[in-house]
């Protein structure tokens, strides 16, 4: 087992666990969505590239690449659909300054 693959898998696992801690720790739905974003972009890429280096021949690499591309194309669509459904049903984010909050409310009656 080569060292770069081990390193990438380690970074990927760390990022994944960070995302898991974030989804438990953050205060409201919208901030949790950013934590999930970490696990779906860089963590997935790191783990899948680490797996590619384990077995760098044949169709395995191509299939891992297909999984990676699919995840990268799917995750923004799913999170956008989720966020727009939440705003559409008036789930308000906890914002830092209160004036922004009023502005958001008035733009989404």
């Amino acid at each position: 087992m080569n060292i770069s693959s081990v390193l990438l898998l380690l970074i990927g696992s760390f990022l994944c666990i960070s995302g898991g801690v974030g989804i438990l720790r953050f205060p409201d739905f919208y901030t949790r969505m950013h934590a999930v974003g970490v696990t779906e972009t860089l963590a997935t890429a790191m783990i899948l590239i680490g797996l590619m280096l384990q077995n760098p021949d044949g169709l395995v690499v191509v299939k891992l690449m297909i999984i990676l591309l699919m995840t990268l194309f799917i995750s923004p669509t799913a999170s956008h659909a989720l966020a727009s459904a939440a705003v559409h049903n008036n789930l308000m984010p906890e914002l830092d300054n209160k004036e922004d909050n009023k502005k958001v409310k008035s733009s989404n009656p």
Binding site: F29, T39, S79, A85
Partner: peptide
Amino acid sequence: PTLYDRILAVNMFGTKTVLLISL
């Protein structure tokens, strides 16, 4: 606590299942 948190969690569970199966 909201329904959206649950959908988000299920979505994350699904994408992590993909990684788990590959591993």
